[in-house]
Design a protein around this nucleic acid. Sequence first.
RNA 1: GGGUCGGUGGCGGAACGGCAGACGCGGCGGACUUAAAAUCCGCUGGGGGAAACCCCGUGUGGGUUCGAAUCCCACCCGACCUACCA
Length: 841
Amino acid sequence: MSDQKTPNNQSNSRSKNDRYDPKTIEPKWQKRWEEEGLYRTVEDPERTKWYALTMLPYPSGDLHTGHWYAMTPSDAAARWRRMSGFNVFFPIGFDAFGLPAENAAIKHNIHPKIWTYRNIERMRGQLKQMGAMWAWDREVITCDPGYYQWTQWFFLKFYDAGLAYRERAPVDWCPSCNTTLAREQVWGEERRCERCGTPVIKKELDQWKFRITKYADELLEGLDKLDWPEPVKIMQRNWIGRSEGAEVTFTTEDGDPIVVFTTRPDTLWGATFMVLAPEHPLVDKVTTPEHRAEVEAYKAEAARKDEIARTAADKEKTGVFTGGYAINPVNGERIPIWIADYVMMTYGTGAIMAVPAHDQRDFEFAKKYGLEIRRVIAGPDGDTGPLEEAYPAKEGFMINSGPFDGTPLPEAIDKVIEWLEKTGKGRRAVQYRLRDWLISRQRMWGAPIPIIYCPKCGTVPVPYEDLPVRLPDDAEFRPTGESPLKYHEGFRHVKCPKCGGDAERETDTMDTFVDSSWYQYAYISPYWKAGEPLSPDDLPWEKAKGDYWLPVDQYTGGIEHATMHLLYTRFFTKAMRDLGLVDFDEPMLRLYNQGMILGPDGEKMSKSRGNVVNPDEYVAKYGADTVRGYLMFIGPWDQGGPWDPSAIEGVHRFLYRVWSVVVDEPKPELVAAEPSPEEVRALERKLHQTIIKVTEDIAGFRFNTMVAALMEFNNALIKAKETPVVGSPIWEQAIRTLVLLMAPTFTHISEELWHRLGNEESVHLQAWPQADPEKAKEEAVTVVVQVNGRVRDKLVVEPNVSRDVLKEMALASPNVQKWIDGKQVRKVIVVPGRLVNVVVG
RNA sequence: GGGUCGGUGGCGGAACGGCAGACGCGGCGGACUUAAAAUCCGCUGGGGGAAACCCCGUGUGGGUUCGAAUCCCACCCGACCUACCA
């Protein structure tokens, strides 16, 4: 610590009657910080940047405990970085498009825009109460035209690059409301419409998609380089779902090819039937007249069931025989073709070869319908006996497989693929579970897709200079929930930019995940070129600023975004790189997922359960610092936990005691007295130990033990204050250090105390205390002496006492003697500075 | 069905091969007070003992080790995510 303290004039500013009053000091400092622009962001090439980002909130209208739990520790970590010398960017904004605004519009007949901005207004006030270092000068609101002009600009860039395309795809449709539904509007196992309760059906509509699958491999491989939590990486890997295998071409008896994908080409000789998805295009053709009625019935049922319950995955498998047969290319066998809804049209080719002996689903299906089960893989021990269940393991060797008999697994898979390619029967292939990203929403409150349909010119993108395609302010909201854009004549009718003739706008808007896929870039220069004509050569932010801040160094947020948002924003960044907008591959280098804060009953907070904790109430009662500290103290940040209304008192009492330690006058007779060197040394040691502990903990997001260390230090100070140490320089250094160490977490009280200690400049601009490891060292350590692993004595010695001396001391101890008496000492384990274990027997 | 995280006092949790229970809540006892609240001080895993001390304890059962809450194997329970992926 470099600053020199001036103990004499400090004590003058302290007064006995001055109690800790968060109600006064918190608004006072929030106002001062804002006036002085303490958290204004400045690009400073002289300093190392740190871009700290926390997931932006949806403006639902009220800041809840979950927001506090997600944001305040994130703020503390960012503040610590700042005090440690980084130039920190910690922006905030609102993810302001989306369904709730539209529901409110219908329910209360209020325009979503008005509802949204009103909520933002309210939440801004609540966010400011947190005492966080938000860069309000860079705030963005995704529903602002100055923001969504760029969302639309990205769409056009993607369209130009072939990354955005239109295709027929099924959507959830409520036949009663006569409208499409978003995924979150479909409720429960029964998949009913949230508004009217009618079972939802699927309907095919033309939909816009982003070609995220182009980056499937890169999204997978990029994970290895990221400092992200392993569970998120695993979820993304599973979501992308890369699997390697082969495509093999079967043929119908009419000679139509049916391509199947399999990860187990080594089991081709065990294919005893084939299954098509009910929607497969060849179903009608292979079905024989005598099976037609049954097949049609099953198709109709499957079409409905597909809607009702994908969730019923564990239900018994069903299917019907089509009457048709296919020829297995590897052995020329004629096998029956079935249709079954356990085969999905959306994965692979929509057709599978069924190998009941080696696939559990096929096995169950074959058992139920009496189809042949032919074992083609012997167990490693040579077992070729009949199977009670499928044998899916990739070990053993091939049997009943003609030329391949005896080929051992797992090499057999590669050998068969090579043979398939040589003979033209199939080829090596990779499949992904990942689908292209469907971004069309038949909704009004989203960024309009900037496309025009012209009867003459076809699909025409809106010219860049005509952006933004603005949402109308006068749309009418019908209780049916239909998109008002479709019925807004002024919006829909437009002149074709190419031929000038009458044309129509696309009325779908974009998925809100599109807005949040690039918001970390928008923060760089909010509303950059808002209202100006754009061109494809533009950059959506000021280049120099972007070069300085990007990419994000630390991202924090909930794990619920593991597969959607976090995959989409990675895709965006990779696409942006290929468009020449950025020169890096990944948007967020580090990620940390906080857990979920639960109600006092240990259950998820929900209005229906009545266990919702309103943070404003506690802020009003204890102040923001207590709420911040309590949320960090509750337990490990990544684990979350229940809100305990009585435990918060502990943190409040701690702050009260800190106040009194720093502010209250020490006893004059103690100040005048001379402390012993031991007393001084003990406080100095604790001081440096605390700096080390707090620094390590805040760096590692271990806020709970960080707060505990601060409490411990304060407890030590309370004791020291009753000794002559209060008159020594070490005391002044200790309370200064306590205030500095508390600053990232308890932002207001530390600022107030810092000023009361006689400082002019904000505590948040101070350098983080540096520990001296020498001064943190213990002079004496307790060495535990065990006999056969049980503690029998303790030795207090200097840390560097040698093994031999420790051994001697341990054996000389009367307590130890008692336990080894009459027994033979077989071994003595000595861990210097820690323990001695005497093994007798 | 698959995946991930977790199971430690009355409660939240700490320790993550070396003194189990830091820190906090709650509880008990004491000080202050006419009294209460607040505040301050002390004690607080269970059992035995007058005490020194001793025994038992980290979901269950095994294993590795001088030594296991911690590492390995099997199982039980809970939370979250995901779901017929060929």
